[in-house]
Design a protein around this nucleic acid. Structure first.
Lengths: 116, 116
DNA sequence: ATTAAATAACACCATTTGGTATCATTTATA
DNA sequence: TATAAATGATACCAAATGGTGTTATTTAAT
């Protein structure tokens, strides 16, 4: 579980940034086009886009004086892969989770907790 | 895309909290057991556990003077579901993403960008 | 009944975060 | 060329964050 997902999770933690990603899932946009969709200043949007780029959730390319922001799969995938490690906890909940609980009960009763 | 995932993503943004989740995926633990696995103080761990609980990534139950922390599927699933909306951007990358880019190129050329 | 263990609840601190406003730079366009 | 547009960069601010240390409370054990 040594991961490179920190940048992605950090970027995903802000609701404005997640909204930006949804907008960019419809079409790539310049900074001005993104900030037209929000009430906050362009400066704030630019900071959000920088953080999204650092998390490799978007990529940016220059086109004249414009910077075109586009969804980048890598960061998305890193975050998704990390979460998928836990998928057994919500898939087949009644089966896997229940048996896990029973195992823990027994473990606790016998005071043999030792995993890291 | 109106979501309740904010608490989960907020909780997931800190690497210590993500590590705690990995530990809890092996076995449920008391606060003392969790903090034994980290260098920081128990007080700091308690704060992290509170944030994880708020994000519904763990649940806490009392057992005598102990508080037993257990992985909670709901928050996990909320974050996963949100990310899955974007899965087409990393699944079949060469096909879907490429055609999306081409669509956007045309849109840009014609200056008809209008989605929100 | 005392004492120790597990946790809760604070107050406090330094740093980060999300935002603003302002000014500079680069690139199109009249 | 002069001007407008798009962005970059910086300084600044209030609030949130991640951490500490200390004290109080509840529960278990001698």
């Amino acid at each position: 579980m040594i991961g490179t997902e920190q940048g992605a999770f950090r970027a995903l933690s802000d609701p404005t940034r997640r909204q930006i990603l949804v907008h960019l899932s419809h079409s790539e946009m310049t900074i001005a086009e993104v900030s037209a969709r929000f009430e906050i200043t362009r400066g704030a949007i630019k900071k959000h886009l920088t953080i999204l780029e650092e998390g490799q959730l978007i990529s940016v390319r220059s086109f004249g004086r414009e910077r075109i922001n586009r969804l980048e799969p890598l960061g998305m995938k890193q975050a998704n892969d990390w979460l998928n490690y836990f998928s057994r906890f919500w898939d087949d909940k009644l089966n896997n989770l229940k048996s896990a609980v029973e195992t823990h009960e027994k473990t606790r009763k016998h005071k043999e907790i030792n995993d890291d």
